[in-house]
Design a protein around this nucleic acid. Sequence first.
DNA 1: CTGAAAGCGCTAACAT
DNA 2: ATGTTAGCGCTTTCAG
Lengths: 360, 360
Amino acid sequence: MLKLAMPKHEDRTPTIREVANLARVGLMTVSRVINNHPSVRPSTRKKVLAAIAQLGYRQNEAARLLKGQRATMIGLIVPDLSDAFFASCAHTVQHIARAHGYMTLVVASERDADLEVQQAELMANRKVSGLLVVTSTAQGDDRLRKLQETGLSIVAFDRPLTGIGTDCVLIENRAGAETAVQHLIDHRYRRIACLGYDEDVYTIQERTQGYSNRMLAAGLSPEIVPGLLTLEDVRAWIKKSLKAEKQPTAIFSLNHRTSTFLLQALKETGIKIPEQVALAGFDDFELAPLISPPFTAVAQSPVELATRSMALLLERIRGLRDGKTFTPAKILLPVELRIRASCGAHPKLNPRTPSPTRRH
Amino acid sequence: MLKLAMPKHEDRTPTIREVANLARVGLMTVSRVINNHPSVRPSTRKKVLAAIAQLGYRQNEAARLLKGQRATMIGLIVPDLSDAFFASCAHTVQHIARAHGYMTLVVASERDADLEVQQAELMANRKVSGLLVVTSTAQGDDRLRKLQETGLSIVAFDRPLTGIGTDCVLIENRAGAETAVQHLIDHRYRRIACLGYDEDVYTIQERTQGYSNRMLAAGLSPEIVPGLLTLEDVRAWIKKSLKAEKQPTAIFSLNHRTSTFLLQALKETGIKIPEQVALAGFDDFELAPLISPPFTAVAQSPVELATRSMALLLERIRGLRDGKTFTPAKILLPVELRIRASCGAHPKLNPRTPSPTRRH
DNA sequence: CTGAAAGCGCTAACAT
DNA sequence: ATGTTAGCGCTTTCAG
């Protein structure tokens, strides 16, 4: 006994076959139109397109994947999505991805190298077309290279993926730090401390390097204070440094978090900025001009960083699809020193006098 | 002539069939083990599990999707990923999703209702198991209900999806505003202005409502100033209000952005806070205690909001899978007024005297 | 409790 | 230029 195909009541999305029937052509013709293969007569293409429009046909990603195609998704891995900088990167990435028809799979590695690689592998399993990653691996993981070898485009940004030949987009961490520190030096500060944490992270290393460079070049002795993870740590350092014979007259902080702790701790202690200690730091932030005194910072652009990274990734995805080969690119983005009042050397004022205890 | 299957040199991921062969069972048994069907003898299950481990088998999502299953992905739609509040939500969502084996597809609607629905549909096409959305639609879109009817779990958070029976997780916008405004009133402020923009957004409407409630209850006349989209707008309002006969002695700002503009504009103008005008606003922020004077704000918790939303979503996904039905839940989360110096009524000080021009 | 067959929607490879 | 065939890896019947 024969069973007739019951018209299912569900609202399935139409298939390529239904389009073919409506357009009175074979399925392959429809497939060709969709993937705009050249060998389809314009008139046929038109018919097919009409049928597609009429039925509201949409490609079935699952079926394409099963045939070995790549998904129209890209993966994004950052250390922490709630960090304003990475959040801004994520926003930009997602925006550009969408504009190019990709969806964005996002995950935070929570600064865990293993989790990062593991998630990259999961994304690769899902056949993403490309991967954008702010790595937390000390040395580029070998498993990432494996993924790359299977034809996955990877672009590292903010931090390079060492030991693996990937494209990367970085910012001028060292030069930025040099500019800021030199600025302090130019304004007669001699005892400049450098505070931060995460000293095994590329960006911090570079910035620290920049600090040391300028200090040494000026004949000054660097005082690097790493490991300041919490507000408590910073408080403790300030307390100790207050008792020291030679207190720093200026501080260069290596990132936003440290700057924040510093501001907080200094405020609690009642130390005057910049009279008793001048401040400058890496990473600008929205409220930097609004705190008192306005905070001098090295500004980088997450939007620019993400935009360039996505552009590179899309280029690579296209290239790989067309079977081209490349040598990894390395892009360096400039930063800008925003001089405000916290460094005691606002451009509208004269350079600071040598007197370290001046009041205004 | 027969073609022998060439052992492909590619590193394909092992299939269910290979596992079956290795374990010397049929494919269905393997499938059952994977989906932990009850009807598999423990000894067989063990064999299969061993084979799976040995081969490093991983489920092929594409094949499952093609058979009509749902993807182990959830979708997240927020207005703006670079907004600290939504970024924090996204971080939390992604974290919990990962802990439950889901990946997260994320997109910013850029406050465009149409884009929002369109992206929701794309995610549904990709067969996500659930959708978390901070809606920008004025009235819940009908297309969203369609999606819901196809078996997609949707949870709205921060703003409700009106006109559609979805679960939602909101915060006490109205009560929060009431608390803040009442606090100002209790401290003898009479002319309290309420500034903001986005007055067609649910949260803003609720907060405005809360403001009006308390003003009216105290016999004061509300002065609501909407449409303040830019710093320029706020500057202009201040300028105008300075000339007015009855200047406000206090301002309640409806969200973080407005607070920021206000702080900026007030600083430029040299108006003293809280002596000339007291400030309180909705949305706390990291640097609120650090600006001068420290800013009084109504704090909400994005982490809590996202956590509750994800819990609800996961519950619904499980429920739907087991064929249960529900009545939509509505969860209201509390907020907290963080009293600092900008409102001129720090708890450590005595309530403000009526004199509006007091200097300290 | 276990297995064989059928087919989800698509595309690569081969006809025509 | 267009059509036909054969799976991709899995799960849903249906038989044992």
